[in-house]
């Protein structure tokens, strides 16, 4: 026998066995989030709607002329961005906060970041619903049958997010300061993603434009807007690019996580 092999369990049988756990953890997060609030689950739609209305009203005054249908432009983009930022920043500390459990029982550890990603995805569905409401109010011609293709960019983005989340959650166990660093990184990242401005605004700044185009989130957000509100579908090349980036992220994330998970327990 190999010298270090212990309790070899296959990935897929594990995954199937622990699917109910994934489901229970998600519903636990959901229950705890809305416990003791009068409106309960309604907050899931109200919260993104109200936040977006505030932000849109503020920025609409500043940027009205550069983007047509600014409210929809912003709300649709930020729905996907918020999914990204919520999933990654919650996953980041997911291993740390599950320390008590990890120290006592054998559970495949990727369940914890994965659960945060799924939970953020569910929240995304609510804020997406809110975004559609805003789009219909502002200009109903923006919505077409292509809007129904929205799961495609969301899936690409979800895979990307899973990879990044695995990476972040593993690294945070070793270096707690990642928690603080990532907050700063996210602030920078949001400005390098065309959320509040159109990409064309950067025409005069080739260097920044290049950086923005190298940012994977730019591609996911633009893809998402294309199908949801522009009634277009991106080219095959753009699709392949998005898939490649997602898979690379997932591959690297899984690799780092797998290498690190054996020693998590010593650092929790």
């Amino acid at each position: 026998m190999s010298s270090t092999a212990t309790n070899n369990r296959s990935f897929f049988s594990d995954f199937k066995r622990f699917m109910p756990l994934l489901k229970n953890l998600v519903s636990k997060d959901f229950k705890i989030k809305y416990r003791r609030s009068v409106l309960g689950v309604a907050w899931s739609v109200l919260n993104p709607l109200l936040t977006m209305i505030v932000l849109t009203k503020v920025f609409e005054m500043l940027l009205r002329d550069s983007v047509p249908d600014f409210a929809t432009y912003y709300i649709v983009g930020s729905a996907l961005w918020n999914f990204f930022s919520e999933a990654t920043s919650c996953s980041l500390s997911s291993i740390l906060t599950s320390g008590a459990l990890i120290r006592k029982v054998y559970i495949p550890k990727y369940i914890f970041p994965l659960e945060k990603c799924v939970f953020a995805l569910i929240n995304f569905v609510f804020s997406f619903a809110a975004a559609i409401v805003v789009a219909l109010i502002q200009n109903h011609t923006l919505i077409s049958w292509r809007t129904l293709l929205f799961p495609i960019p969301v899936l690409y983005c979800f895979i990307f997010v899973c990879g990044l989340s695995l990476f972040l959650s593993a690294v945070t166990v070793y270096f707690r300061d990642v928690q603080h660093l990532y907050g700063v990184l996210l602030t920078m990242w949001v400005y390098l993603t065309p959320m509040l401005y159109p990409i064309s605004l950067l025409d005069g700044f080739p260097l920044i434009q290049k950086v923005v185009m190298l940012n994977p989130m730019t591609h996911y957000v633009e893809f998402f807007r294309d199908v949801v509100m522009r009634n277009t579908f991106p080219s095959l090349k753009e699709n392949l690019l998005c898939i490649a980036v997602s898979l690379i992220s997932l591959g690297l994330g899984a690799l780092v996580f797998k290498k690190a998970e054996g020693k998590f327990i010593l650092h929790l």
């Binding site: 309790n7 008590a100 006592k104 054998y106």
Partner: peptide, 26 residues
């Protein structure tokens, strides 16, 4: 129970293991 991986040596187990989780964990 498979929670810790030993630095050296091998562990082999047969069958389903139910760990009695310490108080409150889980």
């Amino acid at each position: 129970s498979g929670i810790l991986k030993p630095t050296k040596g091998s562990v082999e187990t047969q069958g389903v293991i139910a760990p009695l989780i310490e108080l409150g964990a889980g």
